[in-house]
Design a protein around this nucleic acid. Structure first.
Length: 477
RNA sequence: GCCCUCGUAGCUCAGUCGGAUAGAGCGUCCGCCUCCUAAGCGGAAGGCCACAGGUUCGAUUCCUGUCGGGGGCACCA
C-alpha cells in the first residue's frame, strides 16, 4: 500500500531525472533509527554506478524532485549518509494501517496469496511407533506445525504428514518387550525398558499380536499427545503400506531403469555419488534385506506424486542422511530444492537447573505429555519457537512455568490480560464501542500508539519472510 | 581425519538481498504505587559481532583459513 505508492513515486522521479538503466526493483525499507524517517530507499546507491551517476548527487536530485511531487502522507524527504533517501510521514499513514487491520480482520490481515495454491507437504515428528512422543520430538513438532501454518497463511495448500517406521527390527524388539512384560518377564536386552511398556502390556488382550497391537497403541498415544500440543496431522503414512502397495519394488525398478543401480559384493547399490553424495549407498543388503534407505526413497517418491514441494523436519542427528536422500530424489529426476530438509538442533532440557538425560533404552524419558502438564501447551510451543532452530536451545522447565518477567510467555499472557482489563474498564465506565469509520483517528498521535501501529504495519512483511525462510521465530520475536 | 552447524552485551538470543551510530528480553544500577493489573512503568550503563586474511564504495552478513561448542560419518534404524 504505502510502500507501493512510495515506490512508484521514486520510479517516477528516476524517470524524470533520466536515470538509465532504471532499476528492476525499488526497495523500500523501514530504517532502524527513528530519525531516519518512516521509510527509506537505497535506490540511489544501488543504481548510481550502472547509470554512471554520483550516488550522493543522484540522491539529492531525487530528494528535490520528491519534495516537490510529494506522495500522500509524506511530510518531507531527506538525504542522509552516503545517499539514502528517507521519507518522513505524517501519522495518517499509520491510521490507514489501522483501518486496513480492522477491515481485514484476524483472518485476513497479514495474509498473502503468493503460494497461489501450490502444494507443499510438511513431514515432521515421525517418531518411531514404539513409545510415546517425548521431549526430543517437541521442538520439531512446534516448528513443523508453525511452518505449516505460515505456509497456509501465505496461500499454499499444505499437508501435514507423519511417517510411521513400522517395518524392521525395532518393531520386533518393541513387540517382544510387550510380550515379555505380559508374561511377567524382563524385556530382552536390546528391547524397550520404559514403564509405559509394562502399562501397555497390562492393557494388551491375550490373543493380540504384540507388534500390531503395540503399534496401534503407540500411535493412539502419539496422536493424543500431539493433539494436546495443538498439532494435528492430515496424513499418517505407514512404511508397511509401501510394502503392500509394491511401491518399493517400483522404486527400485525405476532407479534401475535409469541406470543408477549396480550390484557389488552381493548387495544392490545406488550410485548416489553421481548426485553429490560422498559414497554410494546400499539399497538391498547381501542377505536380501532392505536397508532403511530404500523404503524411505519409495516414501519420498510417493510424496512427490502428491505434492510439488516437500519439506522434511529432521533432528540434528539425521543431518548426515540429507545428501543421500537428496541424491536419491535427483536420481528420480527431481530438481534439488524441491526437497527441503530443515535440521532442528537439539534441545537441552533443564529441570531444577540440572540437564535431563534422555535414554530411550532405559526408558528414562520426559514425555511431551509431561511437558504439557507442567507448563501448558501454549507456553511450551511459544518457548520452542522463540529461537531459530539452527542453534541449540536450552529450555529450563522451571522458567517456562514461572510467573515472572524472565519468562516471555508470561509477558505475553500479562499483556493479553491487561488489554482485556482496559476493555472491561471501558464498559464499566459506560463507553460504547463504535465502528472504526465513526472514530476520529486523528486523535491517535501518542508515540506509544504509533509504535503499536508501526508494529502492525510490519506484520505482513514479517509473516512473508518468516514463511519464505521457514523461520517462525521471526513472528515470535 | 572428512562433512554439517553454531560462535554477537553479564545471561538467553534476534539481526531479511552486503548498507547509516549492531538490536531485544532478562539481569544490574537509578527513579516511580492517591483510579486503566506494582503480576507494573520510565531511564541508564553495558560490544574487538571468536580470531586472521580476502572480495568492494561499504562486511556481523559473502569467500578462505585457524580456534572453540554441538552433531554426523554402517550391507543400524
Amino acid at each position: 500500500m504505502i510502500r507501493d505508492s512510495l515506490a512508484s513515486a521514486v520510479r517516477d522521479a528516476l524517470v524524470a531525472l533520466a536515470v538509465d538503466p532504471l532499476p528492476e526493483r525499488i526497495d523500500l525499507e523501514r530504517p532502524g533509527r527513528r530519525e531516519h524517517g518512516d521509510w527509506s530507499t537505497n535506490v540511489a546507491l544501488a543504481t548510481a554506478k550502472r547509470a554512471g551517476r554520483n550516488p550522493r548527487e543522484l540522491a539529492s536530485e531525487l530528494v528535490e524532485h520528491l519534495n516537490v511531487n510529494r506522495p500522500s502522507h509524506v511530510e518531507r524527504v531527506e538525504i542522509a549518509g552516503p545517499g539514502f533517501v528517507n521519507f518522513h510521514l505524517a501519522p495518517t499513514w499509520l491510521h490507514d494501517v489501522l483501518t486496513d487491520v480492522v477491515t481485514s480482520g484476524v483472518d485476513g490481515y497479514a495474509r498473502s496469496d503468493e503460494g497461489a495454491g501450490r502444494t507443499v507437504n510438511v513431514e515432521f515428528v515421525s517418531a518411531n511407533p514404539t513409545g510415546p512422543v517425548h521431549a526430543g520430538h517437541a521442538r520439531g513438532a512446534a516448528y513443523g506445525d508453525s511452518v505449516a501454518r505460515l505456509l497456509e497463511r501465505c496461500g499454499y495448500a499444505v499437508t501435514r504428514e507423519f511417517y510411521i517406521n513400522d517395518r524392521g527390527v525395532q518393531m520386533q524388539n518393541f513387540g517382544a518387550s510387550l510380550a515379555a512384560r505380559k508374561r511377567g518377564e524382563e524385556p530382552p536386552e536390546d528391547g524397550y525398558h520404559g514403564q509405559y511398556i509394562s502399562d501397555w502390556a497390562a492393557e494388551m488382550p491375550d490373543d493380540a499380536d504384540p507388534v500390531a497391537w503395540g503399534e496401534d497403541r503407540a500411535l493412539q498415544d502419539q496422536r493424543e499427545a500431539l493433539a494436546a500440543f495443538g498439532v494435528n496431522f492430515d496424513v499418517w503414512y505407514r512404511e508397511l503400506s509401501l510394502v503392500d502397495s509394491g511401491a518399493i519394488e517400483e522404486t527400485l525398478a525405476e532407479l534401475r531403469s535409469k541406470g543408477y543401480v549396480f550390484e557389488s559384493d552381493g548387495a544392490t547399490w545406488l550410485r548416489s555419488t553421481d548426485f553429490g553424495d560422498d559414497k554410494d549407498r546400499v539399497l538391498v543388503k547381501s542377505d536380501g534385506e532392505l536397508t532403511y534407505l530404500t523404503p524411505d526413497i519409495a516414501y519420498h517418491r510417493d510424496k512427490f506424486s502428491r505434492a510439488e514441494r516437500l519439506i522434511n523436519v529432521w533432528g540434528a542427528d539425521h543431518h548426515g542422511y540429507v545428501p543421500r536422500m537428496k541424491a536419491a530424489m535427483a536420481a528420480l529426476g527431481h530438481d534439488s530444492g524441491e526437497l527441503e530438509v530443515t535440521i532442528v538442533q537439539l534441545v537441552e532440557l533443564l529441570k531444577d537447573g540440572q540437564p535431563v538425560r534422555i535414554s530411550k533404552r532405559s526408558g528414562n524419558l520426559i514425555e511431551l505429555r509431561d511437558i504439557i502438564d507442567e507448563v501448558g501447551a501454549d507456553a511450551a510451543r511459544l518457548t520452542y519457537l522463540l529461537q531459530s532452530v539452527d542453534s541449540r536451545q536450552t529450555v529450563d522447565l522451571a522458567v517456562v512455568a514461572s510467573a515472572g518477567m524472565d519468562n516471555p510467555v508470561y509477558y505475553v499472557q500479562m499483556a493479553h490480560a491487561r488489554i482485556h482489563g482496559i476493555a472491561r474498564r471501558a464498559v464499566e465506565a459506560g463507553f460504547e464501542r463504535v465502528a472504526l469509520d465513526q472514530c476520529d483517528l486523528s486523535l491517535l498521535t501518542h508515540e506509544r500508539e504509533l509504535e503499536v501501529l508501526r508494529s502492525l504495519s510490519e506484520l505482513p512483511d514479517t509473516v512473508r519472510s518468516a514463511c519464505a525462510d521457514r523461520a517462525p521465530h521471526r513472528v515470535t520475536t
